[in-house]
Measured scan of single mutants.
Amino acid sequence: ELVLALYDYQEKSPREVTMKKGDILTLLNSTNKDWWKVEVNDRQGFVPASYVKKLD
């Protein structure tokens, strides 16, 4: 499943990933309501769920 980055996000820990507004990311896990695991540029990590939106 793919998600769209709604905002820029700068990683604050090694478990997170940086994304730019408009990026298309692969959603790996959305079981946590606050932090979703995504893959971007061959890196996996977490981003705030409120910063991304699922693409239909």
Rank of each mutant, 00 (worst) to 15 (best):
L4G: 03
G22S: 03
Y7A: 10
Y9D: 00
L28G: 01
Y9W: 11
K33E: 10
D56A: 12
V47C: 03
E39Y: 09
K21A: 13
F46G: 01
I24D: 01
S13L: 09
S50W: 10
N32Y: 08
Y51V: 05
I24Q: 05
L25P: 02
V38W: 00
A5R: 02
Y51W: 06
R43D: 04
M19H: 01
T18I: 03
Q10W: 13
N29I: 08
N32L: 09
T26K: 15
I24F: 06
D34R: 13
K53S: 11
T31K: 11
M19T: 03
L27C: 08
D23N: 08
K37I: 14
P48L: 04
L6M: 09
V38K: 00
N41H: 15
L25S: 02
S50N: 12
Y7E: 10
S13W: 06
V52M: 06
D56Q: 11
Q44W: 08
Q44A: 12
L28T: 05
L2M: 11
D56I: 12
L28K: 06
K53D: 07
E1R: 14
K53P: 02
E11C: 13
L25G: 13
V40L: 15
K21R: 12
L27D: 00
L27Y: 02
V47K: 00
L6Q: 04
E11R: 14
K37N: 07
V40T: 15
D42I: 06
F46Q: 03
W36Y: 07
R43A: 06
R15N: 14
L25V: 07
K20R: 14
Y51K: 07
K53G: 09
I24T: 07
K53M: 15
G22I: 01
A5T: 03
N29C: 12
L4S: 05
E39F: 09
A5N: 00
W36C: 04
E11V: 06
L27A: 02
Y7G: 05
T26L: 15
N41S: 11
K21N: 04
P14I: 11
T18N: 07
W35Y: 07
Y7H: 11
R15Y: 12
A5F: 01
L55M: 10
Y9K: 01
D23G: 04
K33M: 11
Y51N: 04
V47I: 08
L27I: 06
Q10V: 14
P14Y: 10
N41T: 09
G45Y: 05
Q10S: 11
A5S: 05
T26V: 15
E11N: 07
K54R: 14
T18A: 07
S30R: 09
T26F: 13
G22T: 02
P48K: 04
W35V: 03
Y9M: 01
K37R: 11
W35C: 06
F46A: 02
Y51P: 01
Y7M: 11
M19K: 00
Q44N: 08
D8F: 04
P48F: 03
L28R: 06
D23W: 13
E39Q: 15
F46K: 02
E1N: 13
G22D: 05
K12P: 04
L28A: 03
K33L: 09
K54G: 05
K20P: 01
E11I: 06
M19L: 10
G22C: 10
S30I: 07
K53L: 13
L2P: 06
Y9P: 00
K33W: 09
W35R: 03
E39P: 00
N41Y: 14
P48A: 02
G45W: 04
L28W: 06
L4M: 14
L2D: 04
E1D: 11
W36A: 04
D34F: 15
Y9G: 01
G45A: 03
W36E: 00
N41K: 14
Q10N: 14
K37D: 03
E39M: 13
N41D: 14
A49L: 02
N41F: 14
G45L: 05
P14A: 12
S50F: 09
S50L: 10
P48T: 01
S30H: 09
E1I: 15
D42Q: 12
D42H: 13
D23Y: 06
Y7T: 07
V52K: 00
E16Q: 11
T26N: 10
L6Y: 03
V3A: 12
S13P: 04
R43V: 07
L25A: 08
D23F: 05
Y9I: 02
S30Q: 10
R15E: 11
N32K: 07
T26E: 08
E16P: 05
F46Y: 15
Q10I: 14
A5M: 02
M19I: 14
W36H: 03
M19W: 01
V38C: 05
G45K: 02
L25D: 00
R43F: 05
V47T: 02
N32P: 05
P14D: 12
I24M: 07
P14T: 09
P14G: 09
G45P: 00
D42T: 10
W35T: 02
W36S: 03
D42C: 14
E1Y: 13
S13Y: 07
E16Y: 06
L27Q: 00
K54H: 09
Y51F: 13
V47P: 00
K20Q: 10
L4N: 02
V38A: 02
D34W: 15
Y7S: 08
L6N: 03
N41R: 14
K54Y: 09
Q10Y: 15
V17H: 03
E11L: 08
E16M: 06
N29S: 13
Q44C: 10
L6W: 04
L55G: 04
P48H: 03
D34A: 11
Y9V: 01
P14E: 13
V17F: 15
D34S: 12
S30L: 05
T18C: 06
A5H: 01
A5K: 01
D42A: 11
V52R: 02
V52T: 04
N29Q: 10
N29R: 07
N29G: 07
K53Q: 13
V52F: 06
L27M: 04
S50H: 12
Y7F: 14
L28H: 05
W35F: 07
E16F: 07
G45M: 05
D23I: 05
V38I: 08
N41L: 13
V38N: 00
V40Y: 14
K54M: 11
D23V: 05
K20A: 09
K12D: 06
L6V: 07
P14H: 10
E16H: 06
D56K: 12
D42W: 08
V17K: 01
D34E: 12
T18R: 06
V3W: 10
D42G: 15
Y51T: 07
A5E: 01
K12A: 11
K12S: 11
Y51M: 12
D34T: 14
W35I: 02
T31L: 10
V3K: 00
R43C: 06
L6I: 10
L27H: 02
K54L: 13
M19R: 00
N41E: 12
A49K: 06
L28F: 04
A5L: 02
T31G: 11
P48I: 02
L2T: 09
K21Q: 09
W35Q: 03
L25I: 07
D8S: 09
Q44L: 07
L4T: 08
E16K: 04
N41G: 15
V40Q: 15
F46L: 08
A49E: 04
V52L: 15
D42M: 12
A49D: 02
L55R: 04
K37S: 07
E11T: 08
S30V: 07
N32M: 09
V38D: 00
Y51H: 11
L2F: 14
T18Q: 04
K37W: 14
T26H: 12
E1K: 12
G45T: 02
K37P: 01
I24C: 06
V38L: 04
E39N: 08
V47S: 00
T26D: 05
T18F: 05
D23L: 06
Q10D: 14
P48V: 02
D23Q: 15
E39D: 07
G45S: 02
L27F: 03
R43Q: 08
D23H: 05
F46T: 03
P48Q: 02
V40C: 11
S50I: 10
N41Q: 13
